[in-house]
């Protein structure tokens, strides 16, 4: 195949990013009203060529999982790079309806589930390009308030995380080896979580269950029969949470803040009343964990979200310090802080 990303000036271009042969072939036999299809190997390739050759890209089609690198993370990075706003279509094998709202809010226009059909492609792509400027899509772009962790908090995070990592490193290595010995699979497990500013990241934990191919983050959270011996110990001592120190170092999380949430749960909180909880640091420890009444048993979801919102409204370095110091006595009280997660 010859790689020729040029197009006559003003011709509308449909950019295919990292799509497979079938997708390309299907699109090339569609009637897309004389728009030119150009394939790009990656988003970076598309961005650089689009600038260099002044391409008039009117739509982007990519292929992969919604949460994978070609899905939501790609849309977000294009938004961040201020790439011109165009309809964004994703071709995917796995369409999980639980995260479709999240996909829409992130800026994915539509998803084509494989096997894709020509009428669907033509109907959606042509319509969205033709009506893009009239479709007054509000939730993306300018209107969204963004949140950045305050400098003092970040500094504290880095100092504490570095200090703890250095001290505990030998223990980490021993734990990793023990997990490896106890059952097959990686020592550290990651699951997608939503943190500060509604950013999605991979949260690290020590693996406490045996590996199961169909494991979803939901299964991971529920205490179940798959928990390993060492897993039980790590969970009860909260040591399984320690790898989050790496998330802190990477800047995904803070030491103190609202607990990052699994996607399906975060999605339920995108309402005016609760969205505020994401306008605060995402922390390893926070108000739920420290609140005494939490230890008495189940705290209702409602009051949990209210605690989070209150924290977001009042967050300050002093409050963080208080919560941080109160975490230690809370740790030794009975009850699991992650009961309802």
């Amino acid at each position: 195949m010859t790689y020729n990303p040029t197009a006559p000036k003003n011709q509308q271009v449909i950019a295919l990013v990292d799509c497979d042969r079938t997708t390309y072939t299907m699109l090339s036999i569609c009637n897309l009203q004389n728009r030119k299809i150009i394939e790009f190997k990656s988003a970076a390739d598309m961005i650089s060529n689009s600038e260099k050759l002044q391409l008039n890209i009117v739509t982007i089609v990519s292929q992969g999982d919604i949460m994978g690198p070609m899905g939501i993370p790609l849309v977000e990075s294009l938004n961040k790079k201020k790439f011109q706003k165009t309809p964004f279509f994703l071709v995917t094998n796995n369409l999980d309806m639980n995260i479709c709202k999240l996909a829409l809010r992130a800026g994915i226009t539509d998803i084509f589930k494989i096997p894709i059909t020509i009428p669907k492609l033509e109907t959606r792509i042509n319509f969205m390009i033709d009506n893009w400027s009239d479709l007054n899509i509000t939730s993306k772009g300018g209107k969204k308030k963004s949140y950045a962790v305050p400098f003092a908090t970040r500094l504290f995070d880095i100092l504490v995380a570095t200090f703890c990592t250095l001290i505990f490193l030998p223990f980490f290595l021993i734990i990793c080896i023990l997990i490896k010995i106890s059952s097959k699979g990686p020592a550290i497990y990651s699951s997608l979580k939503v943190g500060a500013d509604y950013k999605i990241f991979k949260q690290y934990k020590f693996r406490i269950t045996t590996v199961n191919n169909s494991t979803s983050p939901v299964d991971y959270e529920s205490p179940d029969a798959r928990m390993t011996g060492i897993g039980k110990f790590l969970k009860s001592t909260k040591i399984d949470e320690f790898p989050q120190l790496f998330n802190v170092l990477k800047g995904n999380m803070s030491i103190v803040g609202n607990s990052p949430l699994p996607l399906y749960e975060a999605e339920k909180l995108t309402t005016d009343k609760y969205i505020l909880r994401f306008m605060a640091p995402a922390g390893i420890t926070g108000s739920w964990q420290v609140e005494k009444r939490f230890n008495k048993g189940r705290i209702s979801e409602e009051s949990r979200w209210i605690l989070d919102s209150n924290y977001a409204q009042n967050q300050s370095f002093m409050i963080d310090m208080q919560l941080f110091l109160r975490t230690f006595p809370a740790l030794f009280k009975k009850g699991s802080i992650h009961k309802i997660e």
Partner: peptide, 26 residues
């Protein structure tokens, strides 16, 4: 219809849609 589509596009998924046929724009 166009407003309805942008409403959906914003991530608002209703359990049911009731639509007139002769609406402007779409």
């Amino acid at each position: 219809g166009l407003d309805a589509l942008s409403f959906l596009q914003d991530g608002n998924i209703p359990d049911l849609i009731m639509t007139d046929l002769n609406t402007p724009k779409l």
